[in-house]
């Protein structure tokens, strides 16, 4: 396959940045998207040019490191996958592929396609945990009976890998699918109910302080989420928040 790549290049956080064209030849349709970028980078290094910076780690679709806004969609045109699971056979020979970083005020670009997603970490620090005594007398989690539906819903919410595709896809750069998933995975389980009120209030407060936009329920996040996190989690977070606000 021969392709024309249009890639966002930005030297550092303060650089203005611009789109740069990179023609690439002999791309195997069986390559993953990140392997294709590896090939491009090898060519750039051989020519003495600066390689394109992009995030990646496990390349198995579970770590949430890879990002990339490809041809106008987070993680590219396929569904329920991360960029590392996107294969070049998805594209046509001769196609122009536009590759951009996640765009959000709360996710500033560090370099090229790498963005700073530590805003998610700070939201997690604000309440995305349960306080459990781990000094040797921890109660076996399986000894507490949990409704099957609640357990399944909590597990589904917990599959969020925090990649940020929801923020990138949302026209408002809202992080509510991420925060909704993190709130839900605990709110549904007895272990999480103890700190439920403070958790949702603190996490939403931190989310707002980070500069994410508000959810207008377009549903783009749910469609583009590589783990299929449902909008039900946002509705649950809304309920939890309103209930916590009345209590608080």
């Amino acid at each position: 396959m021969n392709l024309n790549l249009k890639i966002w290049r930005q030297k550092n956080a303060s650089d203005k940045g611009k789109m740069v064209d990179y023609p690439i030849s002999d791309v195997s349709p069986d390559m993953s998207f990140l392997e294709m970028l590896d090939v491009l980078n090898n060519e750039l290094i051989e020519k003495g040019d600066e390689p394109v910076s992009f995030d990646h780690d496990c390349r198995e679709g579970i770590c949430g490191s890879c990002s990339l806004y490809i041809n106008g969609e987070a993680h590219g045109p396929d569904r329920l996958i991360t960029t590392c699971q996107l294969h070049m056979r998805t594209f046509k020979d001769g196609e122009t592929i536009v590759i951009e970083p996640w765009r959000a005020k709360a996710f500033p670009v560090i370099k090229d396609l790498v963005v700073d997603r530590t805003a998610f970490d700070r939201i997690q620090h604000a309440g995305g945990f349960i306080s459990v005594n781990t000094s040797g007398n921890t109660i076996d989690a399986n000894s507490i009976p949990i409704n099957k539906q609640d357990a399944d819903d909590a597990f589904s919410a917990a599959t969020c890998i925090g990649c940020g595709a929801c923020v990138a896809s949302c026209k408002n750069s809202s992080a509510m699918l991420f925060v909704g998933a993190k709130v839900s995975q605990f709110a549904l389980l007895p272990q999480g109910k103890v700190e439920a009120t403070d958790r949702v209030l603190n996490m939403v407060k931190q989310m707002d302080e980070e500069g994410f936009g508000n959810c207008t329920n377009t549903g783009a996040c749910e469609v583009e989420c590589p783990k299929g996190i449902s909008l039900e989690n946002i509705a649950r977070m809304n309920r939890e928040y309103l209930s916590a606000s009345l209590k608080g």
Binding site: K6, W8, M19, Y69, N71, G72, E73, P77, V98, E100, S169, K171, T218, G219, A220, V223, E224
Partner: peptide, 9 residues
């Protein structure tokens, strides 16, 4: 630069 909003909403 390119946003395909129609694909998801």
């Amino acid at each position: 630069a390119k946003n395909n909003g129609g694909a998801n909403s």
